[in-house]
């Protein structure tokens, strides 16, 4: 094989990373060098072997409908009308808001009142983080009143938060007793993995665990929920 073409250049050539002039140089060298031709041929075959080996790996089914279908389920005209209505409503509210230049925080808070939905996401078994999550949830529920909804979603090591023997269990039980607008979710997959590893996670009965955390989070985000990562 000709010494003028370096090995890294051959790889860059098959990866399409060379300029037109550089490609031309290699192609010119190939005309007089059968060894170089073979080398490029072999490497191209190897490259396509990598692709075909993994490109057809079956992707495990996910137990939910594609999000994209729900995202655009509202007709665009309806969305435009809604937007126009909101903007016009906002204008009217600002007109009625009196003397402070038409700019008031109150109408915005009122407009958002029915949209106070939060996902609090925890993926750690750190007790401090767990306590932080519970404090955050309590603040949201206390400040938001009856219009707020909070979904507490845990995955990975965070599922231990919902174990009956968790040191923060009492605080969680207290919140559940106090607020019926708090829902708990533990990642189905994380629970399965824990079982496979022989770890006992005895979750409290109020915890839902019928889907992977990512599915629950994405579903809510698409419905306009706010995301808080602890």
């Amino acid at each position: 094989m000709g010494k003028s073409v370096q090995t890294y250049q051959i790889h860059a050539y098959i990866d399409g990373q060379l300029s037109r002039d550089e490609c031309f140089e290699i192609e010119e060298a190939m005309q007089f060098d059968s060894e170089l031709q073979d080398e490029i041929c072999h490497l191209r075959a190897l490259k396509s072997q990598v692709k075909s080996a993994y490109a057809d790996i079956p992707v495990p089914e996910r137990d939910r409908k594609p999000v994209s279908k729900r995202v655009w389920s509202i007709p665009k005209t309806a969305a435009a009308s809604l937007f126009l209505g909101v903007v016009m409503g906002a204008g009217m509210l600002s007109l009625f808001s009196g003397q402070n230049g038409g700019v008031s925080q109150q109408p915005l808070a009122m407009a958002q009142a029915d949209q106070q939905k939060y996902i609090v996401h925890l993926d750690s078994d750190d007790l401090k983080k767990q306590a932080e999550a519970l404090d955050e949830i309590e603040t949201l529920l206390k400040d938001g009143g009856p219009n707020v909804k909070v979904d507490f979603i845990s995955n990975y090591k965070g599922i231990k938060m919902f174990d009956v023997n968790n040191p923060n269990h009492d605080q969680l039980e207290k919140l559940l007793g106090q607020y019926d607008n708090l829902t708990l979710y533990a990642c189905k997959r994380a629970l399965e993995r824990a079982m496979q590893r022989g770890e006992k996670v005895n979750v409290i009965p109020q915890v839902r665990h019928d889907k992977p955390a990512i599915d629950a989070v994405v579903e809510r985000l698409n419905e306009g929920w706010k995301y808080i990562k602890i």
């Binding site: 909101v86 903007v87 906002a90 008031s104």
Partner: peptide, 8 residues
């Protein structure tokens, strides 16, 4: 910022 801008 005006309220309508915030909504937008």
């Amino acid at each position: 910022m005006k309220f309508s801008s915030k909504v937008a």
